[in-house]
Design a protein around this nucleic acid. Structure first.
Length: 400
DNA sequence: TTATGCTAAAGCGG
DNA sequence: CCGCTTTAGCATAA
């Protein structure tokens, strides 16, 4: 429960026009170019369509129900710099009589076994063990084989990446200039009823509104074939829960409840997330010690929590971008210091501990963020003034 | 299944 | 800064 830092502290902070302008310029630089989007979208969509509609897929007992559910940064409109990474969830649904029951296997509420409650369809026998549990890894393996087979009928511009043992994704590389495009295909089983562990999350009535939250809880959630990080702990095949569908809807409809006229004041929730992703990437490449474990999902989750604390569009005015971003950084630092970043949907699920992130890495990132914040984000600066030439309080001088 | 209309975001010109 | 056009993605209807 003691998740959030104390409220105000920086509410009184006044925007600094120079810093605000500099952040906005950086944010503009992160935008995707329309020509890049067109190129990439055409190629990606073509491949996905091929995979879904090909004969081997359509004749497979399990995969024939596959439908595209585009998720992740690109489709949430927060991808930065170039459209070079796509996340596509391929969802599988079961006939109504084939009820599947998720059972949580640990305290976190992140991992589940999935068992057929009623009859087991004979065509699916190879994916089900003696107790009726669905075998995540064998389904994933067959899916990979299927994709491989379909790609082999193509012109060779698309290749299959090497398998990564803990990843639930089958990753494709599409050749493209100036840069290859990588596409994560994530096979996901659709579950109609949210597990009990998820029923207490998403406490954000003031931001999204009770009605909207209830609508979300009536939507399905998904199970993906991701192993727990200590692989041998559970002998059964396990699944990890995913709310990518809800996350996407929130990101694309993130204004405060009942606000239908949000056009007038542009909010900076998305720009803040883009800047944070950019900053994390830059820190990773700047030699900052062991912070490579942090992923954009941590940044996104932090943003969702902060939006809950600051629910009003008024709290996110574009003209206050610097204040909002500083607030974001400080909340994120608080999560790092407490080693406590909870999954937005499942409060029992601490992202840091589930992903086995060392406390030391959190401390390192805390310090790196502190340094960036107090020096007005030197890593955002356009280009290097060759080393040494510019000692550290760099640009944006002349305020305060 | 396909066609059509809407929206958010990029791009551009004032 | 503001308004206009274009585009991809998506929802809805036919």
């Amino acid at each position: 429960m003691a998740t959030f830092p104390k409220r105000p502290r920086i509410d009184s902070t006044v925007s600094n026009p120079q810093l605000c302008k500099a952040l906005r310029e950086r944010s503009d630089k992160l935008k995707l170019k329309m020509t890049d989007i067109s190129n990439a979208a055409e190629k990606v969509n073509k491949v996905i369509d091929k995979i879904i509609t090909s004969e081997p897929t359509k004749s497979h007992p399990l995969f024939k129900s596959m439908e595209k559910l585009s998720t992740g940064s690109y489709y949430e409109g927060v991808k930065i710099l170039r459209p070079n990474e796509f996340d596509i969830m391929l969802k599988i649904t079961f006939e109504s009589y084939q009820k599947i029951v998720p059972t949580s296997i640990d305290e976190s509420g992140a991992f589940y076994t999935l068992a057929f409650k009623q009859q087991k369809p004979p065509s699916m026998a190879k994916y089900i063990d003696d107790e009726g549990n669905l075998l995540a890894q064998s389904i994933l393996a067959d899916f990979r084989t299927l994709v491989e087979k379909i790609l082999s009928t193509l012109d060779g511009s698309v290749s299959l990446n090497k398998r990564e043992s803990s990843s639930p994704a089958v990753t494709l590389t599409i050749s493209n200039k100036p840069e290859a495009i990588s596409v994560d295909l994530v096979l996901a089983l659709e579950i109609q009823q949210w597990p009990r562990e998820a029923s207490v999350g998403m406490k954000t009535d003031n931001w999204l509104g009770k009605r909207k939250i209830q609508e979300y809880k009536n939507e399905p959630c998904y199970m993906v074939a991701k192993k727990p990080s200590q692989g041998t702990k559970y002998n059964k095949d396990t699944w990890r829960i995913s709310f990518s569908n809800i996350e996407k809807d929130i990101m694309n409809n993130h204004h405060e409840k009942d606000n239908t006229t949000c056009q007038e004041t542009m909010c900076c929730r998305k720009p803040c997330l883009k800047l944070m992703k950019d900053l994390l990437e830059k820190l990773k490449h700047s030699g900052t010690q062991s912070i490579n474990e942090f992923i954009s999902y941590h940044a996104k989750t932090a943003l969702l929590h902060i939006c809950t604390n600051y629910p009003r569009d008024e709290d996110w005015k574009m003209t206050n971008l610097d204040v909002c971003f500083k607030r974001y950084v400080e909340f994120f630092q608080e999560y790092l210091k407490n080693y406590d970043l909870l999954n937005f949907f499942i409060p029992s699920h601490n992202l840091f501990s589930i992903d086995d992130i060392p406390k030391k890495s959190c401390d390192n990132l805390f310090e790196a963020l502190e340094n960036q914040k107090t020096n007005d984000y030197p890593l955002f600066q356009p280009k290097v003034q060759s080393a040494g030439a510019m000692p550290f309080p760099q640009f944006y001088r002349g305020y305060i």
